[in-house]
Amino acid sequence: MWLAGEASGDALASLVIPPVKRAMDGALQFGIGGEKMRAAGLSVWHDASVLSVRGYVEVLKKLPQLLMLRRDVIRTAETVRPKVFIGVDAPDFNLAIEEKLRKSGIRTVHFVSPSIWAWRPERIHAIKRSVDHMLLVFPFEKAIYDAAGIPSTYIGYPMAEGIPMKPDTHGARQRLGLEPRGPVFAVLPGSRYDEIRWNAPVFFETAREVLKAEPHSMFLIPASDEARRTQIVQALGGFREVAEHVILFSGRSHDVLEACDAALIASGTATLEAALYKKPMIVGYKMPALSSLIIQSKGNTSFVSLPNILEQKRVVPEFLQYFAEPQYMAASLLDQLNPARREHLEEVFTELHQSLLRDTATLASQAILDTIGGAA
């Protein structure tokens, strides 16, 4: 039984479902996931979009629906008794389920450690109660779990295998049918409703400022699904001069990142994917003030973007909350076109890419099967 709550988790789990299913002689893989997990062989019970929410205030609005879904998942799992429950990311939702199921004798695996090294380190205690085995995507996490006595396996970052060490920018532009006359920027305001609601306006204001300096600029926007595509189109309605320079895609975020000269990205896994494509970027993020204050109070790191966290230094400019000013963001985005900066970042991101390469599918599926084998 699998449970992924957002687009990034859907993509990660889709790489592991096929080898697990093969190793289990075709046993049913079912649960909550998105289009990629469905294509990989998951029998989808609920779509992952039901969990697409971020921020304390936003979660409170959907709390009754989320609690009902959680009770339904637990009740179904305790009835069906799957060989293993695999929670993919979404720790605030999945860990509570995993703790309950583990107490009932169902083995639990959690895929992608919560960012306890960045904020809310006290969650390690809940993880120890909830998880039989943790699958880690970053190498430095292993020491944390070893010290806590929690079984874990470093499986590498799954996307690192599928992204070329040397990106083919020209080839990606041909695949997308692009014939640019100026700089090409990827714009990724997020994959959730609330992310786009808060980030899209400031991102499009930034694009408007960029056009003043580079009037032939092109902005590529990949929408994670049709609902987000509609939302982006609506947001662009207030930026007609920007909309004329925008090409909107359904999915194809990797092609968009490979095709761009630089990227404007909301904080999240897309920042690491851009780094794997060796692309200069700036990171912007806005959310309701109360959610931001709560998150800051529990923070344990100076950075929010994964490239900066992994490098433990500011290699990528971050513009957060009140500092997300379009004029400054546009100047920084244009600065990413500097050849010397691009060359430096390519070296940094190539080393990062190499550190994240492992045979992820094999390592993950073997850890899952070992966990099943260890069941009473």
Rank of each mutant, 00 (worst) to 15 (best):
I196C: 15
L264K: 05
P215S: 12
S217D: 07
S267Y: 02
E244W: 00
Q174M: 13
Q234S: 12
P222K: 11
I221Q: 04
K212H: 12
L220V: 06
E195M: 06
F239C: 03
G171D: 09
S253N: 07
P215G: 07
V246L: 04
G251T: 02
E209I: 05
R240T: 13
M218K: 02
N199P: 09
H216E: 15
G238R: 11
Q234A: 14
D255Q: 12
Q234G: 01
R208N: 13
C260T: 02
P222S: 09
L236W: 00
V187L: 13
P183L: 06
P215K: 11
T269L: 04
A213P: 00
L176G: 09
D255W: 09
D225A: 02
S267T: 12
V246W: 01
A243M: 04
P189N: 07
A200M: 09
E179T: 14
F219A: 06
M218A: 10
P183H: 08
L257V: 01
L176I: 05
R181S: 14
A235Y: 01
A263Q: 01
Q234Y: 06
P222Q: 08
T230I: 08
G237D: 05
E205F: 03
T169P: 01
L211G: 11
A186P: 02
P180I: 06
R175L: 13
L236R: 05
A200N: 08
R252D: 13
V256F: 06
D194T: 15
R208I: 03
L176H: 07
A243I: 01
L264Q: 03
L211Y: 12
C260Y: 04
R229N: 03
T230E: 14
V184Q: 02
V202A: 09
R229S: 11
V233L: 14
L176D: 11
D194A: 13
F203D: 02
H170V: 13
Q234K: 14
I221L: 14
R229F: 03
L264R: 06
F249H: 10
T230G: 12
E209L: 00
F185R: 05
G237Y: 02
G237E: 07
T269G: 05
R228Q: 12
R175D: 10
L248C: 01
A263W: 00
P180W: 11
R228N: 09
P180R: 10
G177A: 06
E241T: 06
R252P: 03
D261Y: 00
